[in-house]
Amino acid sequence: MEQQADQKPKVIIVDDDRETREMLTLALELEDFEVAQAANGLRLISILHVDRPDVILLDVMMSWIDGFELCRSIKKNEEFRDIPVIFVSAKKTPEDVREGYEAGAVDYFPKPVDVDKLVARIGQLLEERRRS
């Protein structure tokens, strides 16, 4: 999907912790991103069909379906598999990080998240997509 020059890049934050969603939303909006929030995977699925994001930020530990499972579902879906997924999670053992990449994520940021690094990584992903 072509991004219009005047459109802000869209990021969806999927995390059951409202404080985390609010903090990330504020940080990303300050960097000129359009941000949507979803408290769980069900909400994400409904948003995906209405307002396709450029990047998905995904927590691992959530109710209904965990982030790894949700990421695998997104990557199996023909329509959404090309949307980059970045995990932002308190689960940060090497096994967790490996599972995140195996589920299809392009990156994995442990909480508390370094917002500057996260914003830089999102910018890098958007630039790579623009070039391809």
Rank of each mutant, 00 (worst) to 15 (best):
L118K: 07
E128T: 04
A90S: 13
S46L: 11
V35W: 10
K117R: 12
A36M: 14
M62S: 04
P94W: 00
R72W: 08
F87K: 00
S89A: 12
D15Y: 07
A90N: 08
D15M: 10
L28I: 09
P9E: 01
P53M: 08
K117F: 02
V55S: 02
E95C: 06
G123S: 05
R18H: 11
E2C: 10
K75D: 10
K92A: 12
S73V: 06
I83R: 03
K111G: 01
Q4M: 11
K10F: 09
L70M: 15
E102Q: 13
P84F: 05
A105P: 02
E31Y: 04
E19I: 14
E127N: 00
V115P: 03
E128Q: 00
R72I: 06
G123C: 05
G123V: 00
T20S: 13
K75T: 01
E127K: 15
F68K: 01
K8N: 09
D32T: 07
A36G: 10
A27H: 10
D16I: 04
H49C: 02
M1N: 11
V60G: 02
I122G: 00
V97F: 01
D66K: 09
D17Q: 15
A38I: 07
G67W: 04
L26P: 01
S89V: 08
V97I: 15
I56L: 14
P110W: 03
R121I: 00
E19W: 15
L24Y: 02
L30W: 11
R129T: 07
N40K: 01
F87R: 03
M62T: 09
D114E: 14
I74P: 00
V97M: 13
K117M: 03
L48R: 10
D51F: 04
L42R: 13
Y101N: 04
D17K: 15
L44V: 09
L26Y: 13
E31V: 00
W64I: 14
R81Y: 09
G100T: 05
D96W: 07
F80G: 07
R18D: 05
D51H: 13
L44D: 12
Q4R: 14
E2A: 14
V14K: 06
I47M: 08
V115F: 02
D59T: 05
K10I: 13
D54A: 10
E34A: 14
K75N: 00
L44P: 01
A90D: 05
E19R: 14
N77L: 09
R131W: 03
E22I: 14
E127W: 11
V60R: 02
E34G: 10
T93D: 08
V85A: 08
T25C: 12
E19Q: 11
M61R: 05
T20P: 04
P112N: 06
A39S: 12
V113L: 06
K76N: 03
L70H: 09
E34Q: 15
E102K: 15
R131N: 01
D116H: 11
L126Y: 08
P9D: 02
E34V: 06
M1R: 14
K10S: 09
D17T: 12
E29Q: 15
E34N: 14
T93P: 06
V85I: 06
V119F: 04
T93Q: 07
G67N: 04
D96M: 01
L44G: 03
